[in-house]
């Protein structure tokens, strides 16, 4: 390149170029609103969450029990064999202390997303959720946690029916 080329294209703009009208632009809001079908497996997952249960699915051929549920085993490509009731306890596989929102607003108290390996899965697999009722400094990989459920009347059939996981 760079030996042969002395000038590269590409014009750098600053945010102030937009704010002060030095550059022409237009904006568009795509209003991208969706209703995603939950489907067979996740549909039942949500229904069970509403009742305060965490469920997974089992593949007898691959000898594994996994969560979130799926209708077919992506390893052997057969339908999953059965539903399995799982305990609402698990182990922190990994976590983060997050000080920013998705649109880069700052948070004074961190959110603590974690992958929680759910007891009773095999091989041990997890779901993503938040940790709560815990001092951020004390969170560690390997920590034992349990789901904190919303009261039954507030549950809507959503992953948010579990408020968060807290240390056991």
């Amino acid at each position: 390149m760079t030996v042969k080329i002395d000038k590269f294209p590409g014009v750098y703009l600053h945010e102030s170029d937009f704010e002060q009208g030095r550059v022409l632009y237009n904006t568009w809001d795509p209003q991208a609103q969706y209703a995603w079908d939950a489907g067979i497996a996740i549909g039942r997952y949500l229904s069970e969450l509403k009742q305060g249960h965490l469920v997974g699915v089992r593949c007898n051929q691959c000898r594994r029990t996994v969560v979130p549920p799926r209708a077919f085993c992506e390893w052997c490509f057969r339908p999953m064999d059965d539903w399995v009731n799982l305990p609402d306890t698990g182990t922190v596989n990994t976590f983060s202390l997050c000080y920013v929102t998705w649109d880069m607003q700052y948070l004074t108290e961190p959110q603590i997303p974690a992958v929680i390996d759910i007891d009773g899965t095999r091989p041990s697999v997890g779901i993503m959720h938040l940790l709560g009722d815990v001092d951020p400094k004390k969170v560690h990989i390997g920590m034992r946690v349990q789901a904190v459920w919303k009261p039954e009347e507030e549950r809507t059939g959503s992953i948010l029916d579990i408020r968060h996981f807290k240390p056991v």
Binding site: T94, C98, I127
Partner: peptide, 27 residues
């Protein structure tokens, strides 16, 4: 990239997934 039904309701941001992978790698 997060599942719309089982993950996005938690209001994740993209950094979560990297931060958690990095933490696991470090650990």
């Amino acid at each position: 990239i997060f599942d719309h039904t089982t993950e996005r309701p938690l209001k994740p941001n993209l950094l979560w997934i990297f931060a958690m992978e990095m933490n696991r790698y470090m650990h």
